[in-house]
Amino acid sequence: MRRSCKTLSVLITLLLMIGVFTSGCSDTPDAKTGDKEFYVIGFSQLGSESDWRIANTKSMSQTFTNDNGYELIIENAKQQQDNQFAAIRRFILEGVDLIVIAPTIEEGWDMILNEVQSAGIPVIIIDRSVAVRNDDLYLTNIGSDFLHQGELAVEWLEDQTSDSEYVNILHLQGTYGATAQLMRTKAIEDAESTHSNWKIVAQLYGDFTEAKGYEVMTEYLKKNKDIDVLYSENDNMTFGAMRALDEAGITYGENGQVKIITFDATKTALQYCLDGKISLCVECNPMHGPLVEQLIKRYRSGETIPKHVFIDEAAFTREDLTQEMVEERDY
Rank of each mutant, 00 (worst) to 15 (best):
S129R: 13
D264W: 00
R133A: 05
V20D: 12
G276D: 05
F310E: 12
S23T: 06
T268H: 05
N134Q: 11
Y331D: 15
V130K: 03
A87M: 01
E328D: 10
N234V: 00
V116F: 04
F38C: 04
Q81Y: 10
M242T: 01
S301D: 13
V326G: 08
N68L: 02
L274V: 05
I121F: 12
R128K: 07
I92S: 10
G34K: 10
I12K: 07
G302W: 09
A211T: 14
T13P: 06
I74T: 15
T161S: 15
G150L: 08
E303D: 14
L15T: 03
G213P: 02
V130F: 08
Q323P: 00
E94F: 12
L98M: 15
A314K: 14
T266S: 13
E210K: 10
G174E: 02
G150S: 08
K222L: 13
N141M: 07
E254R: 12
S48V: 04
I142C: 04
A102F: 00
E49H: 02
V167A: 05
D264L: 00
Q79V: 11
N66V: 01
D145S: 05
I73L: 12
D97V: 05
G276K: 03
S144A: 12
E215S: 14
A265G: 08
I121P: 10
G276N: 02
K267N: 09
K277G: 01
P29N: 06
L46R: 14
A315S: 15
